[in-house]
């Protein structure tokens, strides 16, 4: 099945991004660089997983719901990324050079 193959590829790619996000959180030197890794990699990862599932969705409404979930997570993580970075800065956490 072509669709199944495409879904599988998207899922694997999504997993790689989630793995990269976690590795970034573990390996990067300060809170700012860790935020970069987490926010960007996990959102692409979730986007790819949503795309993989959307290909298998039984109805258009389900596709829409999956996209809605992804958009909500985008809002939550960009907001939290900005708030955490901003609070770290105000608390005087100096960026790693």
């Amino acid at each position: 099945m072509l669709i199944d193959g495409l879904s599988l590829l998207l899922l694997i790619a999504g997993m790689i991004f989630f793995l990269a996000g976690t590795l970034g959180v573990l390996r990067f030197p300060d809170v700012y660089t860790r935020l970069h890794a987490l926010t960007k990699a996990d959102n692409v990862g979730l986007g790819l997983i949503v795309a993989a599932l959307a290909l298998q969705a039984p109805a258009w409404a389900v596709v829409g719901k999956l996209i809605l979930v992804w958009l909500l997570v985008l809002v939550a993580s960009t907001l939290s990324c900005h708030l955490v970075a901003r609070t770290a800065q105000r608390r005087g956490v100096t960026p790693w050079q």
């Binding site: 996000g21 959180v25 997570v73 939550a76 955490v84």
Partner: peptide, 9 residues
């Protein structure tokens, strides 16, 4: 706090 974000996504 960053972990809260990790958990959510």
């Amino acid at each position: 706090m960053l972990a809260a974000q990790l958990f959510g996504t």
